[in-house]
Amino acid sequence: MSSRIVNWFKFSSPATFYPLAGRMIPWFTAAAVILLGVGLYMSFFVAPTDYKQGEGYRIIFVHVGTAWMSMFIYVVMAAWAGLGLVFNTRVSAMMATALAPTGAMFTFVALWTGALWGKPMWGTWWVWDARLTSELILLFLYLGFIALQSAIDEPRRADRAGAILALVGVVNIPIIYYSVQWWNTLHQGATVSVSQGSSMGTVMLWTMLIMTLGFWAYAIAVVLARVRCIILERERDTTWVNELEGGVR
């Protein structure tokens, strides 16, 4: 048992994590390209036309995938942040900082595709649907996290303050979602919510799954690349960084 813990902590030091992340990025990038390629092909050529919504429904393959990723990334971010706070390991805190922009990007894309899907279906760009509203609030949580971390100069304080905010945020997400759900049903009754749409055929489910896996691989590649940048920025005057990068030019 102890050997496993030891090597876990070995990876938690920036110097050992940096090359490891470097080796993993190409694999995840390749996976992302392949998965997204297949996913796109299936989205347009394999998935049948929807009898009610015609071709417009294909947006669902992007919308649901990115919405799911935006939620998943926030939880992963809070987990890494919590780890960094408890074990005081710097790399986990850096992972949380690296995850936030990608999570915010996916949230924005989910809102964007939600609006573009809503326009042909219900005639308005923005529908105060429970899911879309929660997605908007999630975007505020991401922006709050990023703004707090960029407002604090001292890296250690930024990590730990961000960690507390992420943990408080992740505890609040179910409460926010539940209250928005309550608020939505009270005011509008059961309007067609964005996600119900047409019944899910197996082909569509598979397409959506593959697209989501593609987004997932993409997210890992991008986040690992960003965490490597953060490591370089924070460890720029350590010896191992100078040996690594100093001699490059």
């Binding site: 707090l148 926010i176 539940y178």
Partner: peptide, 22 residues
């Protein structure tokens, strides 16, 4: 969280308002 930060007043609202929505 925003103790002693410049522009802390606005930042507090950005952090806290989403949490007070319920």
């Amino acid at each position: 969280l925003t103790l002693g930060l410049r522009g802390g007043g606005v930042l507090v609202s950005l952090l806290v308002l989403p949490l007070t929505i319920p």
